[in-house]
Design a binder for these strands. Sequence first.
DNA 1: CTGAAAGCGCTAACAT
DNA 2: ATGTTAGCGCTTTCAG
Lengths: 339, 339
Amino acid sequence: MSEEPRARATLTDVAKAAGVSVGTASKALNDRFDVKSETKARVQRAAADLNFRPNALARGLLAGRTQSVGIVTNDLDGRFAPKIVVGVENALGADQSSVLLSITRGDPALEAHYIRGFQERRVDGILIVGNIPESRPPAQDLHDTPAVYVFAPSSDPRDASVIADNLAAGTMATKHLTDLGRRDIFHLGGRPGEVAARDRAEGTRSQLTAAGLPVSPFQILYGDWSEQWGWDAVGGILASGAAVDGLVCGDDTIARGAIDRLLAEGITIPDQVAVVGFDNRPVLAQYGRHPITSVDMELEAIGSRAAQALMTGHPAPGVLAHPGHVAARWSTLGTANQR
Amino acid sequence: MSEEPRARATLTDVAKAAGVSVGTASKALNDRFDVKSETKARVQRAAADLNFRPNALARGLLAGRTQSVGIVTNDLDGRFAPKIVVGVENALGADQSSVLLSITRGDPALEAHYIRGFQERRVDGILIVGNIPESRPPAQDLHDTPAVYVFAPSSDPRDASVIADNLAAGTMATKHLTDLGRRDIFHLGGRPGEVAARDRAEGTRSQLTAAGLPVSPFQILYGDWSEQWGWDAVGGILASGAAVDGLVCGDDTIARGAIDRLLAEGITIPDQVAVVGFDNRPVLAQYGRHPITSVDMELEAIGSRAAQALMTGHPAPGVLAHPGHVAARWSTLGTANQR
DNA sequence: CTGAAAGCGCTAACAT
DNA sequence: ATGTTAGCGCTTTCAG
């Protein structure tokens, strides 16, 4: 019964329908004070009828800001990046900003390409999210676009980075065990080439020392991030006859392997040996048959803090390390199942 | 030695620097034929010197298209959505389009809010990504914006949806076992209230029938998506004394629990009992101590197909179900470890 | 081959 | 309280 409203309604259309000028329509829709409330209502009615959506391109062109940030990430199907993105989105939602997402698959040329694209779209800033906690060279072609590196810090200290504090995490995990009175603690670390593995192990070392416990090199072991390594390491420790009443495992997969082996050997958890993991992965730590006490690195919080730093427009140089918290469960407490 | 180039260079700046008009500069940078190659080079030089980035807002305002699509998702830290987003990104990258991402946490009001925001930003289309495979009511306020529902189909058949084909997946998983000569097959399903659990189970039932095997109700069991259920179900089957040489488990967690129990009972895998899971989750199926044969739902492909459908501008109504494939591993083959 | 000018949709002066 | 106009940065006719 009406003309087909093919193209999107423009402010001019709304103004025409309401019988006012574009200027007045603009003020009415932006709820400015100098418009009679009656006309304001009339314009709003017309806008609703026409299903009007103000063109953010036109608005952004004029304003010089777009209320948007770009996220450049290596990879989204790892287990870190998605949570970081959620945190970013949370922090930005409060600011009515939206998120542009790109995935570089670790290709620096693709990264540069996406950064250029974001600059063309006039994002207000860029978050560069890594999927492993190793430091990385600064992004090319960033020029004066505000940027914050997340999870994988920039190797240039003048850049702003927000990362997980694996050293503090290692300390917390170990303190959880020493606070429970454990004294014969081993650390089953991940790959020794990776800084996360070394930092977590170093956290254990420093907390053992702080607790007045001796630390022998045989207590800090490295392997890889696998169940098999946790399984084998426990076998080795038991075979050696060494006393053990606590295990700090470099991540939840190692912890799972260690726990399965302990149980297979008839050892009771946590009475005889208490076990802590890292990463607090639901599938392993929370929903397995044997819930694992694990250090949650609070990746969402890391994302949020990075987004907040970016939104200032002038993120402070340097590295901000976020500590996380211990989610205590059966593998150290025997029953409780905290977040 | 030069003025500080505070604000971004504009095309006018470039034209000025190259000593041409904006019109000519525009043509030169867009590599149009009617520009002398010498001036073309001069303009490109100037653009590079000034670190010029064409303003996509201005361009989009003029063109009426923005080369961008919006993704509205419930949740990004589930295990499905991130892979779907990766697939979307892959398909779109080929088209120079970029992705706007939003997370609704399942709140319909927030969903409507984000959809409006995307419309204001003049996205070329919207993908509505669910985190569980249940159908959902159509999004509000979409009007004539092209949209495709992904993973969670729209309940309105006039909408376009791309989903995982759980029925086909159940059939494939079971066929993998019957092809290996297994005849006494049980299905350990997930929550009976969920369509994914029912479809996968129905796939098993239909393949058993197709293979000429009798199907008793006691072979199709439901529980929940947990290791504990897999563990308990195996215990029950063994206690019943029923013959069993194959298990189709509703997901990888159930399969993991089932495998752990079989091994704990001294049963050899796959010789005595072969086990298949679903979802092909790396942490369980690939990197556990006992690699699990699992149906990969190919979520990336689902995302890509949805993006491609969207890019036509007129996605075809109806539901497109994507079948996935079997990733065969130790739990059915004994040794091989395929993707 | 190059320049001038209109206009995409909107907001912010400035008039009235 | 409302209308008019300039202009954000770009592409695209249309002249020259």
